[in-house]
Structures are given as C-alpha cells and as structure tokens.
Design a protein around this nucleic acid. Sequence first.
DNA 1: AAGGCGGGGAT
DNA 2: ATCCCAGCCTT
Length: 262
Amino acid sequence: MLQQTQVDRVIPRYVQFLERFPNIETLAAAPRADVVRAWRGLGYNARAVRLAEFGREVQERFVRIPQETEALRSLPGVGPYTAAAIRVFAFELDDVAMDTNLRRVTHRLKFGIEYPPLASARTIDETARALLPRGNAHDFNSALMDLGATICTARAPKCLVCPLRDACAAAPISASVLDARKRRMRVAPPARFRSTTRFARGRIVDRLRALPPGAGISLLDLQRALDADVDAALLERVPALLSDLEADGIVQRRGEAYALSE
DNA sequence: AAGGCGGGGAT
DNA sequence: ATCCCAGCCTT
C-alpha cells in the first residue's frame, strides 16, 4: 500500500484491510476480486492483484514470509524497496529501504540540492549504506523517512529546524531556488489529468468495484455510467482500456459483460 | 532507460 | 492548479 502512496492515507485502509485479511492464510484463500474491492481509494490497482498473488505464492512456496532478499524479490509486487522494508521493519535486519525520502535526504545531505542529480542511484544507495548503524536499521530507516516526510520535504524543506542542518551539503535550501532548478529540468508540460487514460482506467475499475459481487456490466451500460465523468474521446477508447485491464488481471470478460477478475 | 499505472492531500 | 507520494513491472 505504501508504494507511491502517502502514509496518512494508507493507515485507515490498512486497518480495514487487516480486519478483512488478518493473516497470510486468509489472504491466500481470498478471491482476487475481494482484494481489489478492499483496495478502493488507494489507486494503482495492479498492486492489489500482486498482493493477492503474493499471498498465494508465499503459502505455496515458503509457507511463511521469507527473510532473504532473493526470496522476497522473487515474489510478485516486491521490488528493491519492499524487500528491504520487510527485512528492516518486520524482521529487524540490517538493510536500507531506499524510498523516495531516503533518496532525497541522502542526496541533499551528502551531495547538495538534487536538481540536477549529482549522484547515481547506485552511489546514493552506497552512501546511505555507509551511514547505516549496525543493529539499528529500524530506527535509522524510520528516522530518515520521517525526516524526509516532515522536514526535508520535496517542495519546501524546513532547513531552519532540521537536526542535520550543520552536517548537510544542501542546507539552507531556499524554496524558490529549488523551484527554479527543478523548472529548468522540465521538458514537456503534462496533459490535463481528466483527459488522460489513467483517469478513465480508474473510473472504470471503480464502477466495476461498485457492482454486486458476481454481477457484470455490459460495455454500453458501462459507457453510459462513465459518460458524466469521462471525455467523449476517452469514452470511445473504453473497449481498448478494458482489454488492457484484462491483460493486467484486474478485469474479467464474461460473454458480453465485464466484472472484476476473480 | 523509459513509460505506464491512481487517487488524494499539501501548497 | 500543480506537485508529490514507504515503487514495480513491462517494453
């Protein structure tokens, strides 16, 4: 849930999710569509599909969630960050969970303002590892993430109250300078969000999620339901979007009707 | 290496 | 209005 989604918005969903799926056995036994339904409001619905698969594969291949990086990485939805996060926060092992916060904090601390980038991802990672205190990875990761989320923020960092100010290569950062450097790097202006396929996909899945379990909806009815929210140009592309969603394992076609994939 | 994938809070 | 978020997977 925390992959590209802010902590404050995850917490209530996470609590609800654990009520419905309190352990890996329950998750493994649950229909995929149940997991996708429980995911409402979180976005990036493919993560729900991967989590459902994660549950099944853990039970099938490992019984319990493994601790080794290689084994974790072999599971669906588990990349470099998530594998390290499980090791650090669930198992108290020494590792670096390099998320967007740690990346930004480390860059600023050791190399200066991150626009333009002054170090490769690999170098950033090695730099953070060199700072990791043995036996205190949980505190280390937690502290730097919180620092990044509250003080060393992406937009307007609060260097004046930062405990690392004196040791920081970037401090004090002026918000306007940060903005200017960032703008200088920008290439093409992004499209209006409501006219993106991304928006339409989200509306489609949300409509299917609202269906009674087991029920489906025809293409025509679906387009009718989306008419108020989605541009006409995008409405024509709903069939293609449904195919994409089907390929992603989110949607299932049943004859002329569409539903969440079981 | 680049592009796709959501939704909502913060500024 | 725009930015950004405890990334991952596919091409």
